[in-house]
Amino acid sequence: MIIAERKPMEEIKQAMAPYKKVLVAGCGTCVTVCWVGGEKEVEILASQLRLARSAEGNEIVTLEATVERQCEKEMVTELKDKVAEVEAVLSLACGAGVQTMAELFEDKPIFPAVNTTFIGMPEKEGLWVEMCGACGDCFLDRTGGICPIVRCAKGLLNGPCGGTRKGGKCEIDPEKDCAWVLIYRRLEKQGRLDLMREYNPPKNFRAVKRPGRIQAVKI
């Protein structure tokens, strides 16, 4: 799923400074699961904003709404009436959600309240780690199901760099595992180390022609 992080409060407060009535809009999918932009976070952020503004003697009115997926026009359309009432929208969705909102309500300024960071999974409760770089040319079958594109700090395709720390940790962060050591261990366990000895040629970084656009076949 898509992982995001809330922006610093100061940045949000500054963005909202010119407005008296805003819609704080959450998304019920990825950002809900990573505790950043769901219903609960919407009501907390709205309350924080009201408290901050009331302490400044400059009250702000907040509407709150969370749609199931902010990246789908049909679902965002539900917010039409609420958006009509406000001067601006503060969206807690990922970048795709913010843009869907902006496209549907072209006359309203839409502000992101979160920074979209990566595609990941929860390693344990409350800890999310990056897993996929959406490169458009998946070769996880060759790397024991561990993606070196994003899990190696340098995205190397043919083995670890010379900077691996003792015990197989990453050059840039002793908290993180060297992806290539993980790949080695996984393939060793599977008796498939020959795969690691095979040369991986330079990657086709244009596998997805940016900006990406895929037409599925309707069945």
Binding site: K154, L156, N158, G159, G162, E171, Y199, P201, P202, F205
Partner: peptide, 29 residues
């Protein structure tokens, strides 16, 4: 031909690092 350290250890930590190729691919190149 070498990989190169990560930008995180250097003095321009906010740079976009390239790594379009790795060192093995560079030798082939």
């Amino acid at each position: 031909c070498l990989t190169g350290d990560s930008v995180d250890v250097g003095d321009h930590k906010e740079a976009k690092q390239v790594f379009d190729l790795d060192s093995v691919q560079l030798i082939h190149l």
